[in-house]
Amino acid sequence: MDIETKIKEDMKSLGCNSELKISLTFHLYIHLVDEKLMYDTEYCYNKDIDTLYVVARPSKNDKLNIYVPIPTYDDISLDFINKMQENLCTVETGPTINLAFIESDSTTVIYSFTKGLVERQPPERVIENKAKEERRKFINKELKNQWKEIIDRALNGGIVDDDDCLILD
């Protein structure tokens, strides 16, 4: 029995009966192990939502990430993403879920979705932040334009008027 058959049989034994889901999860598993070189890579099955998925660590010290394989022709809604997050995310994995869109030629593109949207800032705050950014840009531009003169003054002590000096006895 070759390794692909063994892994697919193991996935089926978890409770998944969909050949498509098993095939997609197998491709994702191999992608994460062989191409992304992830650590602690495991495939799992959630019977409540009939979903095969993979958990893996990008590096040894990272938390586990959740990867759900999706065929590229499937329509994905926010409700679907929320359902996946509610059923798969744990304290150990955090609020992020990764959807791995897999093409028929095994091309894989992964998008991350994190629970909890950031509230939109009020218009006054956006204007205020934009003004601050413009001031920063102006100051950085002036510093860049005056850089040579600033360095020369710093290195040469600049020009000192006698009126600015205080003589200590």
Rank of each mutant, 00 (worst) to 15 (best):
M1A: 07
D2W: 14
I3E: 12
I3Q: 13
I3N: 15
I7L: 14
E9F: 03
E9W: 03
K12E: 11
K12R: 13
K12M: 13
K12T: 15
S13E: 08
L14M: 12
S18I: 05
E19A: 08
E19K: 07
E19L: 05
I22H: 05
S23K: 05
L24G: 02
T25V: 10
F26Q: 10
Y29M: 15
H31M: 12
H31F: 15
D34V: 08
K36T: 05
L37W: 04
M38Q: 04
Y39E: 09
D40M: 10
Y43A: 03
Y45G: 02
Y45C: 04
N46Q: 12
N46P: 01
I49M: 07
D50R: 04
V55N: 02
V55R: 04
P58I: 06
P58W: 06
K60F: 01
D62G: 06
K63H: 02
K63P: 00
I66V: 03
V68I: 12
V68W: 00
V68L: 05
P69I: 06
I70C: 02
P71C: 02
P71S: 04
Y73C: 09
D74C: 04
D75R: 08
I76D: 00
S77I: 00
L78Y: 04
D79G: 00
F80N: 09
I81F: 03
I81T: 02
N82M: 07
N82G: 05
N82F: 14
K83T: 03
N87A: 11
L88V: 01
T90V: 14
V91C: 12
T93F: 06
P95M: 14
P95W: 11
I97A: 04
I97C: 11
N98S: 10
N98F: 15
N98K: 10
A100V: 06
I102F: 01
E103D: 11
S104E: 10
S106Y: 10
T108D: 03
T108Y: 04
I110E: 00
S112Q: 08
F113Y: 03
T114P: 05
T114C: 14
K115I: 14
G116M: 13
E119A: 15
R120I: 11
E124L: 13
R125C: 10
R125A: 09
V126R: 09
V126E: 04
I127K: 08
N129R: 06
A131M: 08
E133A: 09
E133Q: 14
E134D: 02
R136G: 07
R136C: 12
K137E: 03
K137P: 05
F138M: 14
I139D: 06
E142Q: 13
E142G: 07
E142L: 15
K144F: 05
K148E: 15
E149K: 15
I151W: 15
I151S: 03
D152A: 07
R153K: 14
R153N: 08
N156R: 05
G157V: 13
G157E: 10
G158W: 09
G158K: 12
I159H: 11
V160A: 10
D162S: 15
D163H: 14
D163N: 14
D169T: 13
